[in-house]
Every structure is written in structure tokens, then in C-alpha cells.
Simulated scan of single mutants.
Amino acid sequence: MMKSHRRFKELGSIFVASCGAFLLSACVSLGSKAPISLLTLSSDAAVSPGASKIGMPKDALVILVPEVPRKLDTNRVPVQVDAGNIAYLKNSVWADKPAILFQQLIAETVSAKNGTLILSEVETSGKAEHFLSGQLVEFGIDSAAMEAIVIFDAVKISKGKPVEKRRFQVREAVAQIEPGDAGAALNSSANKIAAEIANWLAAN
């Protein structure tokens, strides 16, 4: 009887251990396959903690989500293989769509560098008079040139003033076409453009 009881406990322990291993394997990759890299953009010019800005809604700047071509309307990183072919970078995705990440980066950079009050259209209750919009034309890797490339056609709109459009472009070398290098180069390129946009807005 004692032997049967002991055997039952041993089987129970094995069952619990097996269940634990199964649950762990469901959450954590234990194989040799590399996990997917989750890429994002981070601003080099961050707003200081506790910083505040006060202004009228009509004086705030609304930064709209850029329009994008179809190849950028995805969480994946496009790689221009040649003039007529596009692939996507393996084992990597953006944390959000590039247009949204780029909008957030510009907002953070302009707010930090220029001290601008930036609000959404909802927050201005439809009273906004100053907008920054545009199209994110390129945001990926040129494999032939081994470069990250970011092209943004910015459009500045202020009530009572002519509309102004300007193209911003940055290319940055990548040592390898892989998630780490690609993500770092695109983040650096995006930050350079965001800083140029901040200077452009401050000069007007």
C-alpha cells in the first residue's frame, strides 16, 4: 500500500513538472529560431519631465499622421531589392505602423526643441489654425546602396498664410541588412529629419 502511494506521488510530481514545462514552452521560445525584433523610433530630443506648455487652442500646432504609399502601410520594413522589386526585412516588425511612429517622433522633437504647444485636432475642439501634414514617401532599406532611406514631403498650413511644402531626405549607411542595423539607421535618419523640421518650423 505504501509503495502504491509513493508511486502515485511520483507520477503526480512528473505530471506537474510536465505541465509546467508545457506552459513555459508556450510563453518562451526554447528553440534555436531567432525571435522577431520589435522595432520602434525614439526621439533624441525628449521633453523634460514636469515641463508644461500653456496656450490658446488656435495657437497650438496639430501634427497629422502622414500619408504613406501602400508599401509603407504595414508594420514591416521594406527593402528595395532593385528598381522593380520590394521585399520585407526578415524577423522584424515595427511596434506600430511607420506613419504613426514618425508622427509621434516629430511631435516629441518639435515640442522639445521649439517649446511648441502640440495638440491633437480633438484637443483643439476644431479651433486649430496651424497644421503640419505630409507624405512619408520612403522609410526603408535600399539594398543596392546599403543604406537606410527616409523621405518626407512636409506640408505646413497656417490660417491666412500660403501653404508651404518642403522635401526632407536622409540616407544613412547600414553595415548589414538585418534588424539591428536597419532599425538603428532608420531611427537615426528619422531623428535627423525631425530635427530639420523643428528648425524649419522655428524659422517661420
Score class of each variant (00 low, 15 high):
Leu119Ser: 08
Phe152Pro: 00
Ala185Lys: 01
Ser43Cys: 12
Asp44Tyr: 12
Trp94Phe: 11
Met56Gln: 07
Pro162Trp: 06
Glu172Ala: 10
Thr124Leu: 08
Ser18Glu: 13
Ala194His: 08
Leu61Asp: 05
Pro162Gln: 05
Leu105Asn: 00
Ala26Lys: 15
Lys90Ser: 11
Asn191Gln: 00
Lys53His: 12
Leu136Thr: 01
Lys159Leu: 02
Ser4Gln: 05
Arg6Thr: 11
Thr124Cys: 10
Gly180Ile: 14
Lys33Phe: 10
Val16Cys: 07
Met1Leu: 07
Glu108Thr: 11
Gln103Val: 03
Ser48Asp: 15
Ala26Met: 14
Ala145Ser: 11
Ile54Thr: 10
Glu138Ala: 01
Asn85Asp: 12
Leu30Glu: 06
Ser111Ile: 07
Val62Gly: 05
Leu119Asp: 09
Arg6Asn: 08
Met56His: 04
Val155Pro: 12
Lys3Asn: 04
Ser188His: 11
Arg7Trp: 08
Lys161Leu: 07
Leu24Pro: 04
Val65Gly: 00
Ser29Tyr: 12
Lys156Gly: 00
Ala198Phe: 07
Ser158Lys: 04
Asp181Val: 13
Leu11Thr: 00
Leu119Pro: 05
Met56Pro: 01
Pro179Val: 10
Thr116Ser: 09
Lys113His: 04
Ala190Met: 00
Phe15Ser: 14
Val16Asp: 04
Ser92Leu: 06
Gln135Lys: 01
Glu164Phe: 03
Gly140His: 02
Gly180Glu: 15
Val122Gly: 14
Asn91Ser: 14
Gly180Trp: 12
Ile118Gly: 14
Asp73Thr: 03
Glu196His: 07
Val137Pro: 02
Leu101Lys: 06
Ser52Asn: 14
Lys165Arg: 10
Gln169Ile: 07
Ala154Cys: 05
Val65Lys: 04
Ala145Met: 08
Glu10Ile: 15
Met56Cys: 05
Arg70Cys: 13
Gly160Lys: 02
Glu178Pro: 08
Glu129Ile: 09
Ala148Lys: 02
Ala46Cys: 10
Leu64Asp: 03
Leu105Cys: 00
Ala145Lys: 12
Leu105Phe: 00
Met146Tyr: 06
Gly126Pro: 02
Ala128Cys: 11
Arg7Gln: 11
Lys53Gln: 12
Ser4Asn: 03
